[in-house]
Design a protein around this nucleic acid. Structure first.
Length: 249
DNA sequence: GCGACAG
DNA sequence: ATCTTGTCGC
């Protein structure tokens, strides 16, 4: 893992899909790319599960973004591969445009991965987004891989009714009369998760996979492990700067 | 026009 | 997202 960035791209990606000059252009790209989303199961049998996440520095004028991609075996949920990458965010965080800030870093980490997962769980929304193009969908469409959106708070819409307190309790996520996802309680006394399909996946399968990956924590194992890995990467990156010449591995 | 607003 | 140990509550 963490090999030099010389691996050939898995796919040629038009720059405007990742780095539009302004928000108006970004919005147009989202609207155009949203048409490519496949909202049904269109993926191979799952043997390797992926999880991705990003870690940011508190006050970093350079806008460094640390991305992590982890691969877990199914069943078993053991981490079998990890890759990380550091990148500079070209945009500040703007709700509705998260993908343009984080996907480039995720792609860099993805290129360094030896084993590619069959399905990827992303920290953020899929189609539960004003233009049906949350970060999980963004990553999925750009790589044309199956993804699931696993968000910790709402962006648009609200649960149809109160979410039960028991783990496994769920409510339809509705926005403007449209079903966008499922609000799912994964742990007692913890806020529910907002699940939506990202790409090449049905909502039913997305929710089923999140449930299968529960290990007693609020977050499903793939996303939980990715979060840990991204934080490690950030700390390692900062340590390297603080101690030049120390060659921290 | 006024709020809401993933990470 | 991130700052941060112990602590209060179920």
């Amino acid at each position: 893992m963490d090999l030099p960035g010389i691996t050939p791209p898995a796919r040629d990606i038009p720059p405007e899909w990742l780095a539009p000059p302004d928000l108006a252009t970004a919005k147009a790209a989202q609207l155009a790319l949203a048409a490519r989303v496949v909202r049904e199961d269109a993926h191979p049998p799952v043997r390797w599960l992926g999880g991705v996440d990003i870690s940011n520095s508190r006050f970093d004028p350079e806008g460094r973004v640390y991305a992590a991609v982890v691969v877990l075996e199914w069943p078993g949920l053991r981490v079998v591969a990890r890759a990380t990458a550091e990148a500079r965010a070209t945009l500040p965080y703007v709700p509705g445009y998260l993908g343009f800030r984080e996907v480039p870093a995720l792609l860099a980490a993805w290129e360094r991965l030896a084993t590619r997962p069959d399905l990827v769980m992303v920290d953020g929304h899929g189609i539960a987004h004003p233009r049906s193009f949350g970060i999980a969908t963004h990553l999925g469409v750009v790589l044309d891989i199956p993804t699931i959106g696993v968000a910790k708070s709402p962006l648009v819409g609200r649960p149809e009714g109160p979410v039960g307190e028991e783990p496994g309790a769920e409510q339809p996520l509705v926005w403007r009369g449209e079903r966008l996802g499922t609000v799912l309680r994964t742990k007692r006394r913890s806020n529910p998760l907002w699940i939506s399909l990202g790409h090449r996946m049905s909502l039913a399968s997305a929710v089923a996979w999140v449930k299968r990956c529960g290990t007693g924590y609020r977050l499903p194992e793939p996303t939980r492990q990715a979060h840990l890995a991204a934080n490690e990467a950030r700390r390692a990156g900062l340590a390297r700067e603080a101690m030049p010449g120390q060659d921290i591995v």
